[in-house]
Design a protein around this nucleic acid. Structure first.
Lengths: 362, 362
DNA sequence: AATCAATAAGAGACCGGTCTCTTTGAAGAA
DNA sequence: TTCTTCAAAGAGACCGGTCTCTTATTGATT
């Protein structure tokens, strides 16, 4: 009386078989939709299943077949619109192919990422899509490969890992964006990214283990140097990992002795916070400071002025990587593909000539 | 030579047992962390496991234990920042308790929602969190309950379903927001929502099957009537289901014969689109039209003027509902709880006196 | 009418864990 | 010394499906 069985015993194939007066094997054939069964028996089994309200146990099914119908996805931060849009692309492509998605957040921390990958492998996902937070330690990604499960990389490539990868031309597009600023006359341009490094100070590219960001900084610095800017790396700022940290970084950038006249933000979350700080300090965009950001987030077109952005094909990025993975899941033997999607820049109103151009010449 | 075994045979408990010269049961005890084993044997088994790189098959584990460690979540639209933030809250709470989250999108369509629920039950999730898209057809939610799995409702209550539910006081907060507009002098106020109904035209509350929205409209109309506004339901606009549809609705609202002087938007995605249309038409906020929206989305504070918003505790909403579910998962026998989280309004700059106040009086 | 092939249904192993029940062996009590 | 007691390890059933192999039945073939 006190404790009735806590587990609701669910209806199994055997139950249905018994009710339909057939063997377990036959009921399984009907219910599982395989093998050969006569129409009469099929109808009987179906009727029994309906009467008992039979629901297949996908877990048991997965265990014998070895396939779970689940794609594991590990991204840096779902809250970032970049990732939530990419995940949407992945989900849509997955559902279209009959797969489901199980999502994990790494918070851009390698240990969390490793744990997530381990867990997803344990859950026997059919394949994984990862946004690797670091290029240094990829042993867990190698493990995936070794376990026979296909892996695909989203937004960040790993030269050492020969798997399907979908990215954009980060270096090239960073160059184009930087050139827009240089052409407008800017010589003091800051690059702000969430990626952090030991010492929190940028020294050289070797510190940056997030491939996309390294590419971007490389492109940024290249154009700066071409333009004859002295030590442009002074203006590379790391560690904008949260809104609070971003405000700190932005404050430091904007209050320093020689304040940059333009900022290139590595993602829209950072840009939004920077924009707020700029406003707070009573500065104007673009009169006092020009701003370009990666990712055409929804808000960038409604500010005054609207923000010039690098429009990454985020949804397509997610959709493509999922399609690549699914192709592999279906046994495609082609060698790993590295897809680079085209990216454009929407020039809006946040870039103008540098504020101190006249001052300096005076 | 042609096709080597496609399945990489993974290391099982038996393999480890064999390597460590113990029985399968003993190896399982060590690897599964249950039962009693001597330190010597434990060390042996661990060593063997490490040497073979053993990875437990969570699927098999789940099958015998009946627990999968997964919480299934079905939301309307992950792309909507409201949901992505709520999901973040759910994920954080879930991870803290050792659970994982599997996410499904319903696109606010009841058939998709049903399919998703069915699938998640099949996958033997331990419990579900659902944002029911309709209050009419909840048979699938009853099924969950019947299957013995706990269910918790997020953001939308169902009077007929006695399960843990976390919402906000939609009616009350809609009343407060409407009152702000009424007090500012507005008498023509539009309410725009994504929810659609047969005929796409609002007639009465009976058409609205999304509880939160029904509550809101109810609150909105109540205050309008208190203020002596004639037939306020004329201004309830349905069907802003996508950016394109929202633009269509906004255009209709703003170009009609008697244009409202204020708009209350049911979510931030809608508000953003409306804001864009207002701008496009050369109208000003709040001089020509006042605007209040549900959800303090990131962009609402950086527009000119910043938008007055209803600040729902979205992250807490997700976190709380997950905690409630987990409590139940751990066997809490308390009766179902209906949590209503406090909500506030951030008054910013998007509300002013109605533009035609003077005109009308003239 | 007898043989054979094809079709439909049944029996039971298997997947990789968990878990109950049984057996073993050594320490402690009488 | 013998019996009891208990910790530690082993044996094997079980979860709910899939799938191979075997058996029974039917129709076609000669």
């Amino acid at each position: 009386m006190k404790r009735t069985a806590p587990k609701t015993p669910s209806i199994t194939v055997s139950d249905v078989a018994r009710a339909a007066n057939v063997s377990k094997a036959t009921a399984a054939r009907v219910l599982g939709g395989y093998g050969v069964v006569s129409d009469t028996i099929r109808a009987d089994v179906m009727a029994a299943a309906k009467a008992l309200d039979y629901r297949p146990n996908e877990l048991a099914r997965s265990m014998t077949t070895g396939r779970s119908g689940i794609i594991g996805v590990v991204v840096g931060d779902i809250e970032n619109p970049f990732f939530s849009l990419a995940v949407r692309g992945i989900s849509d492509a997955a559902r279209a192919a009959g797969f489901n998605v199980i999502l994990a957040n790494s918070g851009e921390r390698i240990d969390v990422e490793k744990a997530a990958v381990r867990l997803l492998i344990g859950k026997r996902v059919d394949g994984l899509i990862v946004t690797p937070s670091e290029s240094r330690d990829i042993s867990h990604l190698r493990d995936i490969h070794r376990s026979g499960r296909p892996l695909a990389l989203l937004d960040r490539a790993l030269p050492d890992l020969d798997v399907d990868t979908v990215t954009v031309d980060d270096r090239g597009i960073a160059m184009r964006a930087t050139r827009i600023l240089v052409d407008a006359g800017h010589r003091n341009i800051a690059y702000v990214t969430a990626v952090d490094a030991e010492g929190h100070e940028y020294r050289d590219l070797g510190q940056i283990y997030t491939s996309s960001v390294r590419e971007r900084i490389d492109g940024f610095l290249t154009v700066c140097r071409e333009a004859g800017i002295d030590r442009p790396e002074r203006y590379v700022r790391l560690g904008a990992t949260s809104p609070a940290e971003t405000r700190r970084v932005a404050d430091a950038v904007l209050s320093g002795p020689d304040r940059p006249t333009a900022i290139l933000a590595s993602d829209s979350v950072i840009a939004l916070e920077i924009f707020k700080v700029i406003r707070q300090r009573g500065l104007r965009v673009p009169e006092d400071i020009s701003l370009i950001t990666f990712h055409d987030a929804d808000w960038t077109s409604v500010t005054t002025p609207p923000i010039t952005v690098i429009d990454q094909p985020v949804y397509a990025l997610g959709k493509s990587v999922a399609e690549l993975l699914i192709r592999r899941l279906k046994g495609d033997p082609r060698p790993a593909e590295r897809l680079i999607l085209p990216t454009s820049i929407f020039e809006r109103g946040s870039v103008g000539p540098p504020s101190n151009a006249i001052v300096k010449r005076a």
